[in-house]
Computed example of a mutant assay.
Amino acid sequence: MDKVRLQLFCHTLPGTTHDYQVDWQADRYHVGGKMFAMMGGDSQRKPIITLKCEPTRAEELRETYQGIIPGHYMNKTHWNSIYFDSNLSNDLLENLILHSYNLVFQKLTKKVQNQIISK
């Protein structure tokens, strides 16, 4: 998994903002002020990306891929963490980032969605 490629992909999504959470040592990506991705580390500082996911799909992904676990320090039902040293393809990861982004975007108010779309 190529971290720089995934960071660049996050920035291509409309309305994405980025910040760095010093306390967590994590890069966070938001749309409409709501986080959809976080790149940091687990409790042993092993690099991970954490993404929002529809609960049924989240469970299926965890059962299918060894490198996907319940969201580290997040709601385990709605978030997955993926280890950067897992052998998942960049295409799959970009798909999961887009899924996370869309879940968050759909929960924004219509007004905020329209502001993002019209930029």
Rank of each mutant, 00 (worst) to 15 (best):
V112W: 04
D42Y: 08
Q44V: 02
S89D: 11
D19S: 11
Y20T: 06
L92G: 04
R28W: 08
A58K: 01
H11Y: 05
P70M: 04
D91N: 13
T77Q: 10
H11I: 00
M74S: 07
L6T: 00
E63C: 11
R28A: 11
R5T: 14
D42L: 00
H30I: 00
Q44N: 15
G32W: 07
E63F: 09
K76Y: 05
A26P: 03
N80W: 01
H18V: 09
P47V: 02
K111N: 09
K34E: 01
T12V: 03
P55Q: 00
D85Q: 14
N87Y: 07
P14N: 09
S89L: 10
R28K: 13
M1K: 03
Q113M: 03
M74T: 09
F9S: 05
C10V: 04
F84Q: 06
G33V: 02
N75D: 14
Q21N: 15
L98Q: 13
V31H: 00
H72I: 07
C10Q: 06
N114Y: 07
K76P: 05
L108I: 07
K52T: 02
K111G: 10
T12P: 01
H78D: 08
G15M: 03
L13W: 06
K46L: 12
N90D: 15
K52D: 06
M35W: 08
I69T: 11
N75S: 01
D27Y: 14
V31R: 04
T50V: 12
Q66G: 11
G71F: 05
Y73D: 12
E63L: 10
R45Y: 07
F105T: 00
I48P: 08
V104C: 00
K119N: 13
E59T: 01
K119T: 01
I69D: 04
Q115L: 09
Y73I: 08
W24V: 13
W79F: 07
A26G: 14
K111Y: 14
M39V: 12
L93R: 01
K34Q: 09
I117R: 11
Y101P: 00
R45I: 00
P55N: 02
Q106T: 08
W79D: 06
K3R: 14
L98H: 06
N90S: 15
K52Y: 03
N102M: 07
V4R: 14
Q44R: 14
C53H: 03
